[in-house]
Design a protein around this nucleic acid. Structure first.
Length: 100
DNA sequence: TGAGTGACTTGAG
DNA sequence: ACTCAAGCCACTC
């Protein structure tokens, strides 16, 4: 995929306000890339560790995090979200999704 | 060339 | 509420 697509995805993600979340598919749609949910996930996976991008605000469509429950990355994301007031109930997000 | 694999989603049982 | 299957797209052997 192109640099432009990558740019669009990043713009969408930085536009997600603290305290809200968006799903991978939602991010893809807003970036003008329908059906590219997996691609968005791969993009975040390859994200440099020092990136300031709020990647933690991107979750699965069903409200669960994309990582195995309790895993290292899972807990890191959960902690970031909790710092913004987004709590998990039964492994699922308890706050509203980003509306556009 | 092709099978396997995900930081995914949706629909059917 | 849970599991399965299929669709999805790029990457890796």
């Amino acid at each position: 995929m192109t640099e432009d697509n990558q740019q669009s995805v990043w713009q969408v993600i930085v536009a997600i306000p603290a305290g809200k979340v968006a799903s991978y598919g939602q991010v893809a749609d807003l970036a003008g890339l329908p059906r590219a949910a997996r691609w968005v996930g791969r993009l975040l996976k390859n994200l440099p560790a020092d990136s300031t991008l709020p990647w933690h605000r991107v979750v699965r469509a069903d409200g669960r995090l994309a990582f195995a429950t309790g895993s290292e990355r899972y807990q890191r994301q959960q902690q970031r979200l909790r710092a913004e007031g987004v709590l998990l109930r039964n492994n699922k997000i308890n706050r509203q999704y980003f509306q556009y």
